[in-house]
Design a binder for these strands. Structure first.
Lengths: 140, 140
DNA sequence: CTGTGACCTCAACCCGGGTCGAGGTCAAGG
DNA sequence: CCTTGACCTCGACCCGGGTTGAGGTCACAG
């Protein structure tokens, strides 16, 4: 073996899934969707190196952040330059996340206000009523 | 007609849905799930008053904030006092929302960093790699 | 009287994102 | 030798959250 190449520590699908915190079935599913690949197969079995496990972890991370599998695939398959670069897409997504965050913050604020509301039912809570009156409930 | 009772302005399901920004089919679906009810039916047709439309709007709002229909139903059907009060549940949900917000903020920060990353592919982006190394990628 | 439009019910279907189970292969250990 | 455990494939199934379509009922306009 060429010197300087350590054992690489390949792991099976079970171990890979465990490390990333997803189920084995999900890993296979992601593979079927083209999101992740084992570095190699030995006797039919998938083997993952550090790189591949990290890729899986990135999928899990993005998914957890609310991206759909299709969006993740899109991020992965784009090139690094131009208008259609992955950076451009990342910018878009970051902006979307930004507005999502603002929405959630408003919601959290309402819920916190609501905690000190004496109404016997959430539906009677004036804070929540206020929340919906802020929005285009009664639209154009 | 008793004096002092204005026409109440009842609207049909189409108008109610339009005001809240959801589809008619979704309104019926929510009704089937017990989340919302028309104030009355005339000749089989659902009629909604301001109150009912607001309730629908609250459903839409909560859903948009990431609550499942079951969670929303739970919020609605709880009483106003004690350990199982809707306020208590609102507190829990607010806390969950809080951690969700933090996660999303981290993700947004990573994506923003990533925009200035020269890698030809997102998978090579060191910022994102950093993101996953912060987490329990390689677990216990 | 006949459209047209808004509404009704009910069952079937769709999509995303997986999960499950049957039936089979392999390697290592007792 | 035989079991055990981890893995394989493939097709069926599940759940949430709706959407669609067929077939029918109204009310009002022309």
């Amino acid at each position: 073996m060429t010197p300087g190449t350590p054992p690489q520590s390949l792991v099976g699908i079970g171990e890979a899934a465990r490390r990333v915190g997803v189920r084995v079935s999900a890993v296979r599913f992601y593979e079927a969707q083209g999101l992740v690949l084992p570095v190699e197969r030995r006797g039919g079995r998938r083997l993952y190196d550090q790189e591949a496990v990290e890729r899986l972890a990135i999928v899990a991370l993005l998914k957890n952040a609310g991206f759909s599998l299709a969006q993740i695939a899109d991020l992965f398959t784009r090139g690094g330059t131009g208008d259609e670069s992955w950076q451009a897409l990342a910018r878009e997504r970051a902006a979307e996340l930004g507005s999502r965050i603002v929405e959630l913050q408003r919601m959290r604020d309402y819920l916190e206000l609501a905690q000190s509301c004496p109404s016997p039912c959430l539906l009677a809570c004036t804070h929540l009523r206020a929340a919906i009156r802020d929005k285009p409930v009664t639209a154009p």
